[in-house]
């Protein structure tokens, strides 16, 4: 009985602690808001003959894969608090999509015009960096690992 009481006490304490964290810690939604710049694209579980050591791919390969996949070609991702995301492409054009977080805040869902939806898994999110995975089974087997760095605001950069 003592063990059960102890377990229940720990359970209640942990529940209170969880409640405190949920109320006081910022939701991942707030962490996401801001400008993010793509730093690298890596492919995990890629098909290879065993001789390839570096999974990072060059711009040409990246462009080729992007052409065939539904992933958009964007370098700067600007998340706004009204759940819109501005995707600035390499060519300078931009596209506005709707973003939402799902699950426990680990799924980033992007809804394009025409209701086309892309889902990314957020692997790591901190104040200045973000790693997201995109699962796909189209022409390249595996997971795309996209790494972002937070872009500081220009005024802030100028001040420094």
């Amino acid at each position: 009985m003592t063990v059960v009481r102890l377990f229940l006490s720990v359970l209640f304490a942990l529940l209170l602690f969880s409640g405190f964290i949920i109320l006081n810690k910022e939701s991942p939604e707030k962490d996401l808001i801001g400008q993010w710049e793509e730093v690298s694209w890596e492919y995990e579980k890629v098909n290879h003959d065993g001789t390839l050591i570096d999974f990072q791919i060059n711009d040409g390969q990246q462009e080729e894969i992007r052409k065939n996949l539904l992933i958009h070609k964007s370098e700067i991702w600007s998340f706004f608090s009204d759940h819109t995301l501005d995707l600035k492409t390499i060519e300078g054009t931009s596209e506005k999509v709707v973003w939402n977080l799902k699950g426990r805040g680990h799924i980033l869902e992007l809804e394009h015009e025409g209701k086309r939806v892309e889902d990314y898994q957020i692997q790591y999110l901190s104040h200045d960096s973000m790693i997201i995975h995109f699962n796909f089974d189209l022409q390249v087997r595996g997971i795309v690992k996209m790494t972002f760095k937070r872009k500081m605001k220009e005024e802030y950069a100028q001040k420094i």
Binding site: L11, L14, L15, F17, S18, G19, I21, I22, K25, E26, S27, P28, R104, G105, H106, Y124
Partner: peptide
């Protein structure tokens, strides 16, 4: 989530299990 130090997500999952 605990091992990653994502306390917010860990708290959410703990409440779900509870």
């Amino acid at each position: 989530e605990i091992s990653k130090g994502n306390w917010f997500q860990a708290a959410i999952v703990f409440v779900w299990i509870s």
